[in-house]
Amino acid sequence: MTQPAENKTWRKGGFANTVLWGGLVFLYAPMVILMLYSFNASKLVTVWGGFSFKWYGELLHNDSLLDAIWTSLQIAFFTASAAVLLGTMAALIMTRFGGFKGRTLFTGMITAPLVMPDVIIGLSLLLLFVQMASSFGWPADRGMVTIWIAHTTFCSAYVTVVVASRLRELDQSIEEAALDLGATPLRAFFLITVPIILPALASAWLLAFTLSLDDLVIASFVTGPNATTLPMKVFSSARLGVSPDVNALATVIILTVSLVVLLAWYISRRAERKRLRVDI
């Protein structure tokens, strides 16, 4: 398509463009309002009592909250790492392996977690852990390890989708050339494929990390008395209504996650451009 034609269609989609900008306002306005109110000095959420950082200061002295943040970060880190490992294997199987016995079941188990309601995943995994504990004594206590297993299971599905879409568009002739020149499949994968799909692996890791950090329902089912995650803390105070310290906490979370995602996006875009330049 030539450039002028592209511009013409862009101008022509007047209605769609209006909806797009309206939709973006709809997506961002609630978060902006929430952030503004986190600087409200008044204890009454809706009355503006002047600009203040005091709710942020109070967060730093809330030990149980800091504990929950640390627990969530640890779980998210190990979840993202394991999910990238499992999900990349699954993506390779989906894109490079052709048919094998049980492929249909495999695809089903990889795609179903994307849509399966959280309450079902949470309940079913909890019942599994309870049954395992009564059958052979493990896991004796539920907590971070059981949350990690549950999160890894559903995050792998997302990783598979991200990595598989990158693997599909990859030029397979480079891999084949390496194999023809005598590299073992394992060597070819780590020396050729991994460096090329590294940006996709990084964004899949980040996606799994944020998904794990955000999950309330599944973690609530599979946790034990000793592990409280950040979403559980947020939920139990949000249930009681809007409060300024939750607003402050929410602002910190939104800004941190957005900053990291934007940074990752910027880096991967630069890497992508460099790659395209090298290709030419």
Binding site: L24, I33, V242
Partner: peptide, 19 residues
């Protein structure tokens, strides 16, 4: 721009509507 909100917390974005 469309995807960024879904990366940040689902729970918090629902909470924002309460206010």
């Amino acid at each position: 721009l469309v995807m960024l909100p879904s990366w940040t917390s689902f729970l918090i974005r629902i909470y924002a509507w309460m206010g």
